[in-house]
Design a protein around this nucleic acid. Structure first.
Lengths: 224, 224
DNA sequence: AGTAAAATGTGATTTATATCACACTTTCTG
DNA sequence: CAGAAAGTGTGATATAAATCACATTTTACT
């Protein structure tokens, strides 16, 4: 059986659980591995679990009127489906691994009990939800008002600084998914990346990216 | 002094408070009235309060790279600033009354204590945050992929069905604010509304709107 | 009530980006 | 490792919506 108490990548919330609660957690959760491309949970399915992303990277996405929309990229460690568990019984979005990933599924009833009986646990879940909301507002406001080059510049900087901690990285999304994330077509993504490459702002080899001039990217991002 | 315990428009969370907690709430909150156009709290200011919208209607909005972005319209009763209180010390968005409004400000420390010591209270706050997040995802996905007529159709239906419970209502936003909400220019909003009016889908008198053909609007909304 | 200020409507023009079409390249898979 | 399938690059064209410009209407104010 897995050991949650000594897990090195506990959530901020789980750090507040006591001995007894850890035992409950351990016997009411399972850890599952997913490969890049695997679906972790699916829009419109019923949820009975809270998903906690222990390692790897995931896209949260949902069906839009004309195509798929990527809501947000999540890097481990992080909860994946709190809104999808407590906002409605049915998932309003899907989660798909974009890197090899391991996820702990926690029985929603026990998770709920932690919220009800452990104030610190609940408080950490709330701050987590709040921070996500603020991030989302920030991102949607930018995407809403920036033109495509600005959105791509944003995204590249975010990937480097928030997701990979490195200016060289393997893009975890293909051009079409990049389009779904920032709200444009795969062709436009392609064109702008080529342009950035020609202007030596980035070095591009299909999906391997090196950001050569982060400051210039930031400038493009700010100008919209 | 105001009376929270017998308040008829308590939040779902507050319904779980006990006698002692209501006394704490009563002596650590104030009720303030705002007129249409008044700022309730402002982006970049420090927050020490949770705002609860008791009556009226409010827009949550934030500065974007080129203009103001309206994040969401809130109808009473509802909390206004939970993410802004627990996500960061500094407000990431502003709240402005779009109708005459009354707001209760609750000392954030006491509010936090309710979360820590009253599990049902915390649970209700969490489900509220989750539902908002799901709504936001839904809305942003639509706006992202629909053309302007579809977004306006969406918005009109939402105003009628979610905010005013009536197919006749006074638009609480001017054309420019409508643009900030759906991500377009005031001119485009104006043009589309005129068009809907000419096609007798709505009846329009400046800011007085009657939806004549809700089904047609819904169809326009779906087609994007 | 009368004037100033703000908001709105609407045509003409420009522009960013979608779409279409197709060649090319990378990656899977047996 | 060969062939198929998926993904990518890039030109040509179409188009939705932004912007500009200005007349008109509505609202606010003393």
């Amino acid at each position: 059986m897995h050991n949650c108490k000594d897990c090195k990548i506990k959530s901020a919330a789980a750090r507040n659980l006591n001995q007894e609660e850890f035992e409950i957690l351990e016997s009411n959760s399972v850890q599952v591995r997913f490969k890049k491309g695997d679906i972790i949970f699916k829009e419109e399915a019923l949820t009975l679990n809270v998903a906690y992303l222990k390692t790897g990277m995931v896209k949260l996405h949902k069906k839009g009127p004309s195509r798929e929309k990527i809501l947000r990229i999540v890097r481990a460690p992080s909860y994946l489906g709190i809104p999808t568990t407590f906002g409605d019984k049915i998932n309003h979005f899907s989660a798909t691994a974009i890197l090899d990933t391991s996820v702990c599924f926690i029985d929603a009833n026990y998770f709920k009990n932690f919220i009800l009986h452990n104030g610190q646990f609940a408080y950490e879940i709330i701050t987590d939800l709040c921070r996500n909301e603020l991030n989302d507002y920030q991102r949607y406001t930018s995407y809403d008002q920036k033109q495509i080059p600005g959105r791509i510049a944003d995204t590249l900087i975010c990937f480097a600084e928030k997701l990979f901690d490195s200016y060289t990285f393997q893009l975890p999304l293909n051009r079409s998914e990049m389009g779904d994330l920032i709200g444009t077509s795969r062709e436009s993504v392609s064109r702008i990346l080529t342009e950035f490459n020609q202007e030596k702002i980035i070095e591009l080899q299909t999906s391997q990216i090196t950001i050569l001039k982060p400051d210039l990217l930031r400038e493009i991002s700010e100008k919209g």
